[in-house]
């Protein structure tokens, strides 16, 4: 998706499309041969995705309705072959009622949304002026700045989060700096706090925010700003009444690109957050690995999926609109 943002726009040639249609009508290909090739081209990736992406979700759904039992795998089958050749379907909704009844899980969900929301807002506040600055620079400098934004995306995510552990530590450089300038007198706890999680989130997902914003700002017709200035509009007002509304698709796409992965994030809260930083990705992980409660982990995943799928569809619509606009 990030890649999509920095790929240049397409120029589809209407004539060649018409030409293709004509050719399809005029020149009859042997239908068998083309049919087989076409089926293979579509079929192979389709089958792969169906087997390794669609079916797994059905299994998660199935297990979310089942009970824990001491075995491997640690779940009760929901289809049971009873004595008199009757197949019983045992669906338990207990996992879901358990989750909604337990304040821990509810808190984990609401806290994930809160943390992701604040991180998205912070990333927007920092990312917008950066994208704006890069889009308004010309020539080689723009390419360099652009590369500097993209570069962290290619370096290890894990190591970038790790870098903050050293920086935020009790004896780390940030504490030392704050003491030097006299803001604090003794080291404060920065690591294992929500503050550290926000920093980690903004740090990791900032490129996702900047790229669609950059694409939107770069597209803007600068003569509109000149027109606004000619009509006596001040630059600040021109920004808020011309540039900002024109880039709202970019803002929307950037926010979704940061918010969606941030909600389910595991690594950042696990490394930078404290034991009380409840986030849903972490809870799913712990339920699965520590408690070995596969059904509850599955049920939590299903709920998270339901929460996010609306946003994912929204994102697709925004990107499709962007595509057709360009």
């Amino acid at each position: 998706m990030v890649v999509m943002a920095w790929l240049s726009c397409r120029g589809s040639d209407a004539m060649s499309v018409i030409g293709l249609r004509l050719r399809q009508v005029l020149v009859r290909q042997s239908p068998m041969r083309q049919g087989v090739g076409r089926k293979l081209v579509i079929g192979i990736p389709y089958l792969w995705l169906a087997l390794f992406f669609l079916v797994p979700f059905l299994i998660v759904l199935k297990i979310s309705f089942s009970n824990v039992q001491l075995s491997m795998p640690p779940v009760e089958p929901i289809l049971v072959f009873a004595a008199n050749q009757v197949v019983q379907l045992r669906i338990h909704l207990a996992n879901f009622s358990f989750i909604f009844g337990d304040s821990l899980y509810v808190a984990a969900f609401s806290n994930s949304i809160k943390v992701a929301g604040i991180s998205t807002l912070l990333a927007l506040l920092l990312g917008y002026p950066m994208a704006y600055g890069i889009a308004r620079v010309r020539g080689t400098l723009r390419n360099i700045l652009f590369l500097l934004v993209v570069l962290p995306f290619f370096t290890s995510f894990l190591l970038r989060v790790y870098a903050w552990i050293g920086l935020l530590g009790r004896n780390g450089p940030l504490n030392a700096l704050l003491m030097q300038i006299g803001v604090i007198h003794e080291p404060i706890q920065l690591l294992q706090t929500d503050f550290a999680v926000y920093i980690g989130m903004v740090y990791s997902y900032l490129p996702f925010m900047i790229l669609p914003l950059y694409a939107a700002i770069e597209k803007q017709d600068l003569t509109l700003l000149e027109a606004a200035a000619d009509l006596g509009c001040r630059p600040v007002r021109a920004f808020f009444s011309v540039t900002l509304p024109l880039t709202k698709e970019g803002i929307f796409a950037g926010c979704l690109l940061v918010f969606i992965p941030a909600v389910g994030e595991y690594v950042i809260p696990a490394l930078l957050g404290g034991p009380d930083t409840l986030m849903i990705g972490r809870v799913v992980w712990d339920e699965f690995f520590a408690n070995r409660d596969w059904p509850v982990a599955s049920a939590l995943s299903i709920i998270l999926l339901a929460l996010l799928s609306g946003l994912v569809l929204l994102l697709q619509r925004v990107q499709a609109a962007e595509k057709s606009a360009s």
């Binding site: 998706m1 579509i42 990736p45 389709y46 995705l49 169906a50 087997l51 390794f52 992406f53 669609l54 079916v55 797994p56 979700f57 299994i59 998660v60 297990i63 795998p73 969606i260 992965p261 909600v263 389910g264 994030e265 595991y266 990705g281 799913v284 992980w285 699965f288 596969w294 982990a297 599955s298 995943s301 998270l304 999926l305 996010l308 994912v312 994102l315 697709q316």
Partner: peptide, 24 residues
């Protein structure tokens, strides 16, 4: 569905993708 299946893995939380693949 195909178009959805090709883009969904990019945006889904990795915890969910990992869990579902393991269960598969």
């Amino acid at each position: 569905i195909f178009a959805l299946l090709t883009t969904a893995p990019m945006v889904l939380p990795e915890v969910i993708t990992g869990l579902s693949l393991l269960l598969l």
